[in-house]
């Protein structure tokens, strides 16, 4: 009986050790027409958003999106456009995470994809830009 139990315990441990390596990683560079189009849209928009990142009006959130951090930092005449850009960027980002998970044939990975991208965006952010740290507080890079 003990031997059987021990065997199960070893098997259990073996499975535990094996499980992480068995879990396939999402291919974040996967390419589909939708992903290509989303990336193109985001690239075009980036030029318009960069000024707002630099001024601190817009920051990168810790859930892979962008948010108004200090709208007052943008001139009044640009705030309407800034809001539109932020809304459009977030729609594209959400669609991108969904599409990448779907293209990997694992729609349920959307959240993991989002978390990885959140770290990636913040890592790529230029000095002086604002981002949300793990606790949700704004920090300057």
């Amino acid at each position: 009986m003990n031997a059987t139990l021990r065997l199960f315990a070893w098997l259990f441990l073996a499975v535990l050790c094996w499980a992480p390596s068995a879990q396939a990683a999402a291919d974040l560079e996967i390419d589909t027409p939708a992903i290509t189009a989303l990336k193109q849209h985001m690239q075009q928009r980036h030029g318009e958003l960069a000024g707002f990142y630099a001024s601190g009006a817009v920051g990168l959130t810790n859930d892979g999106l962008v948010a108004l951090r200090d709208p007052g930092a943008a001139p009044l005449a640009q705030r309407q456009a800034m809001n539109g850009l932020v809304a459009a960027e977030n729609l594209d980002r959400q669609a991108l995470y969904r599409e990448i998970a779907r293209a990997n044939n694992h729609p349920e990975w959307e959240n993991e994809v989002r978390v990885t991208f959140a770290q990636r965006w913040i890592g790529k952010a230029a000095p002086g830009w604002w981002y949300q740290n793990a606790s949700g507080a704004w920090a300057r890079k």
Partner: peptide
């Protein structure tokens, strides 16, 4: 199946 109007 078309995604963004292109076949996938």
């Amino acid at each position: 199946e078309l995604s963004n109007w292109k076949p996938v």
